[in-house]
């Protein structure tokens, strides 16, 4: 059994968007669309500020509302690592999945189907890291198996304080941010 997850160290991330560019070239994401993105979250009053920088994308949730609401089964949980994927030829473009995602991680591809991050499963299947992780110049992104206690992601989650985005939405997200 494997459940893939990403752990991102917000202390090291500089928000340079290399992950976004790499995703676009790797996956041929059309101009004007993003499967991943950067969020800068600033709290406080100048000069007493705190900023968290996050590289965000589909959370490949354990309870994926986008899969539940899909009327055709196009959105599905892939057996490999519990990755949430969309089968383009089953998708009717009803957009229920877009509305169901608390992260707004999906969009309609210009060809009509719902599209989103795939955790670069095509790379992972041949032993590579997702493009975003492999390119990150600050080495702030980690990818691995939550079910493997020895994985980097588990080690980091066990040793560092972390949070997910909108856990209160109840979707059990699989991207964790080290703080």
């Amino acid at each position: 059994m494997s459940r893939y997850a990403m752990v991102i160290d917000t202390k090291k991330c500089v928000g340079c968007m290399d992950c976004v560019v790499a995703c676009k070239t790797e996956n041929n994401v059309p101009e004007g669309y993003n499967r991943d993105w950067i969020v800068q979250d600033v709290m406080g009053k100048f000069p007493d500020l705190h900023m968290e920088i996050r590289s965000e994308r589909c959370n490949h949730c354990d309870e994926p509302p986008c899969v539940h609401c899909c009327p055709t089964g196009a959105s599905h949980v892939h057996e490999r690592g519990g990755v949430v994927l969309v089968e383009h030829n089953k998708c009717i473009g009803c957009k229920a999945c877009l509305a169901s995602c608390p992260y707004d991680a999906r969009f309609i591809h210009p060809d009509g189907y719902a599209d989103k991050c795939t955790f670069c499963i095509h790379r992972v299947e041949v032993g590579l890291l997702p493009a975003c992780v492999s390119v990150c110049p600050t080495h702030c992104m980690y990818f691995g198996n939550l079910d493997d206690p020895a994985s980097d992601v588990n080690k980091l989650l066990n040793s560092r304080s972390h949070h997910a985005v909108l856990p209160e939405a109840g979707t059990k997200p699989h991207i964790f941010y080290l703080t």
């Binding site: 968007m17 976004v20 004007g32 669309y33 993003n34 993105w37 950067i38 969020v39 800068q40 979250d41 600033v42 709290m43 406080g44 009053k45 965000e56 957009k95 877009l98 509305a99 707004d104 999906r106 969009f107 309609i108």
Partner: peptide
């Protein structure tokens, strides 16, 4: 205190509002 959130995502039909 204020809370500023900036996102680089600009997907059609999604951003800035769905």
């Amino acid at each position: 205190t204020t809370h500023e959130i900036t996102t680089t995502r600009m997907n059609p039909m999604i951003d800035p509002g769905m």
